[in-house]
Nucleic acid binder design. Structure first.
Lengths: 201, 201
DNA sequence: GTGCCGATTGTGGATATCCACAATTTTTCA
DNA sequence: TGAAAAATTGTGGATATCCACAATCGGCAC
């Protein structure tokens, strides 16, 4: 999935106009005429951003937003509405919506918001990728190696680790060397920095 | 400064009503009749939250908010307004306001928002405190000790550090022991975890 | 100018880590 | 049941770290 602007609005005129606007600015745009239609197309791997009309036949934009939140959506959402009120906007933003724009909107303004949202998603995606690769390396560890790693990160000596796991120091050394290799680090400090911010129970 | 609700509104009736409401819920409340008056009372050490009316004579609530942002305010801000519109609310929230409430408001609702804001501030304050104490410990390090620490955090051996600083390994050992003592850690791993997320150039 | 602080270095020994060479036991999975 | 993966342990030596004891040198403040 390359970065794309997903547009959900039941008004064909708006879909056409916005689609044209976005494409004229070099942005790929996929339109859906209903929340339901977008839901079937949605996957956690989508990247870019989501333009979401609030008032629609069937599931509303707000309902779709809630549903996507449950599904773990990370795509930044920009709400579009002609009938928004303040509490609605406040609630949407506090739930994590990226923006909330009233119709009629200024074309340049909207495109700017879209570009910001895409930039935000790109950045999140990059940090996700590195944390995924880290998770992969952690998964490749054996149970013992993970136990040893945890104790190393607790700042304990091999001797103490051996004691707590009821194994010989030599075995700890082996696990230590192996897990350093798998995690791609050369020292405990590097490991600690790599793992900082990660859960590793 | 104990945790207090700061209220800025140029309508005396509202100040009285809100002040009464908050105090009846056990919340200390300090009222100010203008943005200017609050500004002179403001200090970075205030804790609690700020209830801010938007439409006021003189400096508006939004202007005060911007000014406080420049001054480095960390107090959560809840806007109160009888004439808010969606773009205004969106802009305020995107700038970091804690909430945006329209008048007339439900008493319980508002008190809940205030309690949330206070909880949020209390939490931030706690994490600030520990990071301040950390900063203090870092400040207590000598120049050399800081240099050595940086290299330790880069995962380098004493030998390499000695080389890079053109001093003997023994000297590095001394600095290392001293800075561990000052930072309150026993191993490089603990130091690394302590410093994770901190800048230490 | 005397004293304090920070930086510097040395010796020597106790601990700890790193690793090659070598091997056995246990678990897991097909 | 047999092969592969994982866990285990030992020896011995090279490196690294930790630390007490001891000392020199330069800058700065009172």
């Amino acid at each position: 999935m390359s970065t794309t602007v997903y547009l959900v609005d039941d008004d064909e005129a708006i879909r056409d106009a916005l689609g044209w606007l976005l494409q004229s600015r070099g942005l790929e745009c996929h339109s859906h005429e209903s929340a339901e239609a977008f839901l079937t197309a949605w996957s956690p791997t989508l990247s870019g951003c989501l333009l979401l009309d609030i008032r629609m036949n069937g599931m509303s934009g707000l309902q779709l937003f809630d549903k996507l939140l449950e599904l773990g959506n990370r795509l930044p959402v920009i709400f579009l509405t002609g009938h928004g009120d303040v509490p609605m906007a406040v609630s949407a933003l506090k739930k994590g919506a990226f923006d909330f724009v009233e119709k009629p909107f200024d074309d340049n303004e909207l495109v700017n918001r879209v570009l910001e949202a895409i930039a935000c998603d790109t950045q999140r995606r990059a940090s996700d990728a590195s944390s995924d690769s880290l998770k992969g390396r952690i998964d490749s560890l054996t149970t013992r190696e993970r136990q040893v790693m945890t104790l190393i990160l607790a700042g304990k000596f091999n001797k103490v680790i051996a004691d707590e796991l009821n194994i010989s120091m030599r075995t700890v050394e082996v696990h230590r060397a192996n897990l350093f290799e798998k995690m791609g680090v050369r020292t405990a400090v590097e490991l600690s920095q790599l793992m900082s911010g990660q859960a590793h129970s």
